[in-house]
Amino acid sequence: VTIFLNSIVPKMLMDQITGVNKISVPECGIQMFLYVTLAGSEFFLLASMAYDRYMAICHPLHYPVLMNHRVCLFLASGCWFLGSVDGFLFTPITMTFPFCRSREIHHFFCEVPAVLKLSCSDTSLYEIFMYLCCVLMLLIPVTIISGSYYFILRTIHRMNSAEGRKKAFATCSSHMTVVILFYGAAIYTYMLPNSYHTPEKDMMVSVFYTILTPVLNPLIYSLRNKDVMGALKKMLNMGIVFQETIK
């Protein structure tokens, strides 16, 4: 999460403070590579987390063996490898297009679709290729996530203990919240036709899944922690008492 934010936010804040909204071609390429790599890795990491929850809920007794350190290391390495393939694939191709139009990017960072709009050459074939890659990048994780939660829901339905069902839902709810936020924004950005896009909408959606979602991730996942929930309830109760005291 920190690396994802650090690839975009520091440059954006510096531009806001100095008022100099410029970025060199090498800096733009590096930022694009980091963003694409981290976003691609995030797709597969969320799928790996769904598989982890499937193992924890559907095979709790075998979980320490099936999800040992070696397996977790293999899954994490695979996610980062696939994400880096994405970065090495899209970044060089995007940056080698001739840009003979205005060099002004209508965005707050070097995102692939925003940079492509500056090219004076025909990018339709590359956009089709990028669309097919995004479909594949989404289809594989979505299939894993859907399959995992299908078996999870079947297992939860068979549980006799209400406490067990509650615990299982609590384990999955935070992950599903992040999946919906992240995948929904990615589908809008990379898979909807150009007629649905405007610079303003693109920037709003990009802020949502490049900044807000990573920032909210720790909060979403920590809501499962009893101490965090207790502190949150205490803070809300103090706010209510304070308002009543003022009245």
Rank of each mutant, 00 (worst) to 15 (best):
residue 1 V to P: 14
residue 2 T to W: 12
residue 3 I to A: 14
residue 3 I to M: 11
residue 8 I to A: 02
residue 9 V to W: 09
residue 11 K to I: 09
residue 12 M to Q: 05
residue 13 L to A: 10
residue 21 N to R: 14
residue 28 C to T: 13
residue 30 I to Y: 06
residue 31 Q to C: 12
residue 35 Y to E: 06
residue 42 E to W: 12
residue 42 E to H: 14
residue 50 A to C: 04
residue 55 M to N: 12
residue 58 C to Y: 01
residue 60 P to E: 08
residue 61 L to V: 15
residue 62 H to K: 15
residue 64 P to E: 06
residue 67 M to G: 05
residue 69 H to N: 13
residue 70 R to V: 11
residue 76 A to M: 09
residue 79 C to M: 01
residue 80 W to Q: 13
residue 93 I to K: 10
residue 96 T to H: 14
residue 100 C to F: 13
residue 101 R to I: 00
residue 101 R to P: 01
residue 104 E to L: 07
residue 105 I to D: 04
residue 107 H to W: 11
residue 107 H to E: 08
residue 108 F to N: 09
residue 109 F to N: 00
residue 111 E to M: 09
residue 111 E to K: 08
residue 111 E to D: 10
residue 112 V to W: 02
residue 115 V to K: 01
residue 117 K to L: 07
residue 117 K to M: 06
residue 123 T to F: 04
residue 126 Y to D: 00
residue 128 I to K: 14
residue 130 M to Q: 14
residue 132 L to N: 04
residue 138 L to W: 01
residue 138 L to C: 09
residue 139 L to S: 11
residue 144 I to T: 06
residue 147 G to N: 08
residue 147 G to I: 00
residue 147 G to W: 07
residue 149 Y to D: 02
residue 152 I to Q: 00
residue 156 I to E: 04
residue 158 R to Y: 05
residue 164 G to M: 09
residue 166 K to W: 10
residue 167 K to S: 10
residue 168 A to I: 03
residue 170 A to M: 14
residue 170 A to L: 10
residue 170 A to D: 14
residue 172 C to P: 03
residue 176 M to S: 04
residue 177 T to C: 02
residue 178 V to F: 12
residue 178 V to L: 13
residue 180 I to F: 03
residue 182 F to D: 03
residue 183 Y to C: 04
residue 185 A to K: 00
residue 186 A to Y: 05
residue 187 I to K: 03
residue 197 H to I: 00
residue 199 P to W: 03
residue 200 E to L: 09
residue 201 K to S: 07
residue 203 M to Q: 15
residue 205 V to F: 02
residue 205 V to D: 05
residue 205 V to Q: 03
residue 206 S to K: 05
residue 207 V to W: 11
residue 210 T to N: 05
residue 210 T to F: 04
residue 212 L to E: 03
residue 213 T to G: 05
residue 217 N to W: 12
residue 218 P to R: 04
residue 229 M to Q: 10
residue 230 G to D: 09
residue 231 A to V: 08
residue 232 L to R: 03
residue 237 N to Y: 12
residue 239 G to E: 04
residue 240 I to W: 15
residue 240 I to H: 15
residue 241 V to H: 14
residue 243 Q to E: 03
residue 245 T to W: 08
